[in-house]
Design a protein around this nucleic acid. Sequence first.
RNA 1: GCGAGAGUGGCGGAAUUGGUAGACGCGCCAGAUUUAGGAUCUGGUGUCCGAAAGGACGUGGGGGUUCGAGUCCCCCCUUUCGCACCA
Length: 902
Amino acid sequence: MADYPYQEIEQKWQRRWERHKTFTTPTRPDTSRPKYYVLDMFPYPSGVGLHVGHPLGYIATDIVARYKRMTGHNVLHPMGFDAFGLPAEQFAVEHGVHPRETTEKNIANMVRQLKALGLSYDWDRAIATTDEDYYRWTQWIFLQLYNSWYDVEADRARPISELEVRLAAEDPSWTARTEAEKEAILGEYRLAYLAEVPVNWCPQLGTVLANEEVTNDGRSERGNHPVFKRPLKQWMLRITAYCDRLVEDLDLVDWPEPVKIMQRNWVGRSEGARVDFRIDGRDDQLSVFTTRPDTLFGATYMVLAPEHPLVDAITTDAHRDAVAAYLRDASERSDVDRMADAKSKTGVFTGAWAINPAGGKRIPIWVADYVLMGYGTGAIMAVPAQDERDWAFAKTFDLPIVRTVSPPVDHDQDAPYTGDGPAINSSFLNGLHVVDAKARMIDWLEETGNGEGTVTYKLRDWLFSRQRYWGEPFPILHGPNGEIQAVDEEDLPVKLPPMENFRPEATDDPDAAPRTPLSRAPASWREVELDGVTWERELNTMPQWAGSCWYYLRFVDSRNDNAFVSPDLERYWMGENGVDLYVGGVEHAVLHLLYARFWHKVLFDLGHVSTPEPFGRLFNQGYIQAWAYRDARGVAVSVEDVVDQDGRPAVEVQDQPGRQFFAHGEPVTQEYGKMGKSLKNAVSPDDICERYGADTLRLYEMYMGPLEASKPWNTRDIVGVNRFLRRVWRNLVDADSGEPLVAEQEAPRELLRALHKTIERVTVDMNRMSFNTAIAALIEFTSELVPLDRIPRTVAEPFVLLLSPLAPHMAEELWERLGHASSLACEPWPEADPALFEDDQLEVVVQVNGKVRGSIRVAADAGKDTILSAAKADENVQRHMENGTLRREIYVPGRLVNLVVS
RNA sequence: GCGAGAGUGGCGGAAUUGGUAGACGCGCCAGAUUUAGGAUCUGGUGUCCGAAAGGACGUGGGGGUUCGAGUCCCCCCUUUCGCACCA
């Protein structure tokens, strides 16, 4: 080795960039130039540090950032840390130190690792969500939510004070109400509100979890502990007010289509109707939501979810015991069991009957757990003939089935029919197809007062409090009589109190009352005296998601003490499309992106930001995967300990067929999965940087394949790009003297042509983030340089610039040795001259009947006739044309000739 | 079950609108250089037939459109991801 002193060079330039603040974006940028805001989804500062999978996206955005600087943009390219939340806290608990200490140590280590990759972040803007200067504004945004309501008519959020004015004007008794009464009403409107809701209570974690943090089988995503439903008073955010806009505004952004689909599905908008059923012999009615109002005549029974509030009231004495037994069973059945036998339906008759408003028939009301309380009204009208689930239930309990959509003749008689067809057995709907029948039925429901057309959403309001220490405290005070008061903006931040014991109160008892860590905080923190009254602080903290909901805004103006962001800087950096490029993994396709969009829209409505959407363009990088090995017990074995049957290390042969693998003499099985510590297949960037250098690591990660694809890490393959870099070095630097091997003379035409072709290819590839092919182009061009003793300066300099976003350390060093005193970071990007890269000779392929039979070289300006006759003159072509007559001649300019013969 | 994506040499991958399939890299083979190893350089490398020229086959499978299909259309298989009794 030794011909390319990468360690020396990389340290030198990393230090120089830092000292010269090369990548610091001025607080007041020259706004006459275009801006480019390129952002990574910021990481948790975890204790184990990075593996080579993490920086994949960071390297890509760094290349984009460097490229954009060279094309005349003001670039904003910051990095920060999502440092609150369960992982940080649990790490701290396990290691017995304060989370702040752990967090800071982890951040420092991660910063070191990131800097070692030569990433051109503006570190002066770095933030952690745990900084008091940061979460002060997280709390401030929470107050914006708390102090706002959603005006449905104006279709936007407005200050709650405006609602008070309106209520006072509309309701003469308003002024006479007590403060508590007023607050109770306002609480129904606030975007942040307290509510007693059934929540996912996890005793072992000592906290409640959002639905999204609970797995399908009713366990915590983190730690896999049992989770129980229980009612608790919690802070909620009224994200449901934004359902429609969260769906509609997806049309405004350039995001991967699958992510948009996932978001739409998550919001789960569905159009249908509310239908009210009278309960026979009672005054109250039962409302259901259906997407198939056209099938109302086929509704032969009704079903309530076990948790439905009317169950108890309508159940007749004769059925009371059976219903009670069923409810008990249902509450004990875990979601797993419910899922496992989704096909076999269970349920119980309540003894009550409803009246189908269409036709007036009496239909039985059942309770069954296939109806979920969390969707629609928690009750359904069952139409077995047109619904799979209702059909299965009706068959199980022998309930009547009436077809109201005529199935096609070939349709299975013993199956429900959910497709389109003319209505039958449906009075005034008969003959209408589904779409028209729906519309007609909705009209009828509205005319007769039996219901109305409505829209239902799957998305629920966002459960926003956690029983944790390591999160943002709420800026909220509770009065002695249950009053609620926001902390004054001037008194923010509400800092986390220093505590010795910040552990959550874990217990195995599902009924244990939650005691949050902050409830053990000293009274001096917990209690606040205002005008002689003692208020107690809110003792919950905010969830992990809070800090990551708005960090992209803070980066714009991260040291501002007077505002969360100054309006003019926000307008410049977030202008037009918000963040111009946002790169991260698909795992954030729904939650983080939906929550951040929601906050952004609230801030937009209140006039604090200027764009309706935060992230104009989203890009999901793929995962880095790797081979992994397990022993006979199924325990993951470190890859380094594995060899094949010939004793060759697994890393060299793991992608080849016909191998058996062994660790310590024992056979192991091979599998393939996402890189990480659980599979023991993680590779540290530190090791790769030490052995090959950061430029090689950057190049390899980009060269592996398309950025959006998941692909396997193969340490063996790294030598390829490393050889390339060393070749570049040898070509441009004299091994003995270290002098640049450049020639101050004109470049030969052929070399210039190759250079400009390369500029063109690399530029196109940069713009479409196709870095693997950009590198391939540079490798090909380098082969042209190899035979030269000296490289003409007019070729060497553009080449170094082309290389610089990808391998910045080497490029800077070469640039300096070529005689430049300052960094190339803002040098103009080379421009391809079409006059130079066009060939004067073309190679045209000649096909006979679509098969390649030869190729001819012609002058670039040759006409069609010349080319055709040259094609026909080719010896091999003639041989294939002998046995037929020429029927057709196809000429694709500059590419190929196809002669059709029969 | 529903929805989305992906299947190309031994491996990673390339082929922007239908126009030479396999660029570039790894690995492998051969040669040069070197005391040796390493490194470097040169050439070769989809499969099959052939000494070569050349030919046949070939982008998960089957059909189709076209002068021409990895690319467009229909059916099927495999696989990854997301959602999952959402009325």
